[in-house]
């Protein structure tokens, strides 16, 4: 029988929504038990939150002063130390999981399945390669521990209402001192979170400047949407890097996505494939974004977006 351990991503105060998505993925393995490991300085509240996720059987609370910033070099040995009790160890395919999980896998001397998008069996999964242009089925050896990251955009978050047991664990692992956290510069925003918002408005290079990007913010605010951007807009300095949607930015799956002034490079499309409805607004009728859009409008964004705000905004 499969025993899955999920490594919880959090910021010390709250669990990241990726945890409940990993739980949904793990639940796709027939008959699996699902445990969540919470590594923190004082994980009491986080462990309770994890215990309340539907489908979690047990929470391992691993408190350690070294877990203040969850650096891969310090977290990986602790995860590897508890992994022996499990058949699968999952993390999210967020920057946190991408950084951490291969380090865990190597410590356990196994390869990793990156970006699980579909569970076909306990050791059989689908995952995207080539920026999502190809989907492969991989089969893993059943006699080895399986380490994987979960493509969070492919899964709905598991609900609340669970009541898993919480177990405190002392982990005996040597933690290196060669890597130190210095600081985090986080974009402060009262807007909805890009990775979980049901509505997202993204702007591209056609906005032309940081000032003009205000048009995107203002439309997004009027419909309660999160704000994203194409790589071109980030590279041009209109918006910070954490707003990038695409192959190397965030992979998202909102119910409604507005691509405004975005041509639709394949790398951007990779990031929005799972969106419910894609609306494209672009001056260029030949822009590739129209090939994937559910609703397309050829027009000047500087004219269209204010009208749209007027019609839809509140």
């Amino acid at each position: 029988m499969s025993k899955v351990l999920i490594v919880a991503e959090h910021d010390g105060k709250a669990l990241n929504p990726s945890v409940a998505k990993c739980v949904s993925c793990a639940r796709g393995i027939d008959g699996a038990t699902v445990d969540v490991a919470v590594l923190a300085v004082d994980g009491a509240g986080l462990a309770e939150a994890a215990a309340a996720i539907d489908g979690v059987d047990r929470v391992l609370r691993i408190d350690n002063p070294a877990n203040e910033h969850l650096l891969a070099a310090t977290v990986a040995p602790q995860v590897a130390a508890v992994a022996a009790d499990y058949t699968h160890v999952f993390g999210p395919s967020t920057m946190f999981g991408k950084d951490l999980m291969p380090r865990v896998a190597a410590l356990l001397e196994v390869n990793q399945v990156s970006d699980i998008m579909e569970v076909l069996g306990p050791y059989r999964f689908k995952r995207p390669i080539y920026a999502g242009n190809v989907v492969i089925t991989v089969e893993a050896a059943e006699d080895r521990l399986l380490v994987a990251t979960v493509r969070t955009a492919s899964y709905q978050a598991a609900g609340d209402g669970g009541s898993a047991s919480i177990e405190s664990r002392d982990v005996d692992a040597e933690l290196p001192g060669h890597s130190r956290f210095v600081k985090l510069e986080a974009g402060s925003s009262d807007r909805p979170d890009l990775q979980t918002a049901p509505r997202v408005v993204s702007g591209g290079r056609a906005l032309g400047s940081e000032e003009n990007f205000e048009l995107i913010y203002s439309f997004a605010d009027s419909i309660g949407a999160a704000v994203g951007a194409s790589r071109a807009a980030v590279d041009a300095g209109y918006v910070p890097n954490e707003m990038q949607v695409g192959q190397t930015g965030k992979i998202i799956a909102p119910e409604l996505y507005f691509a405004i002034g975005i041509s639709g490079a394949i790398q951007h499309l990779t990031g929005i494939k799972d969106a419910g409805t894609i609306v494209a607004i672009n001056k260029d009728a030949e822009a590739p974004i129209f090939e994937v859009a559910d609703i397309g409008l050829v027009g000047d964004l500087f004219k269209v977006v204010p009208e749209l705000k007027e019609a839809l905004g509140s």
């Binding site: 650096l71 967020t94 956290f181 210095v182 985090l184 986080a186 990775q195 890097n241």
Partner: peptide, 8 residues
Amino acid sequence: VDVGLETV
């Protein structure tokens, strides 16, 4: 990182 830039 997902929320911005982390310095290590």
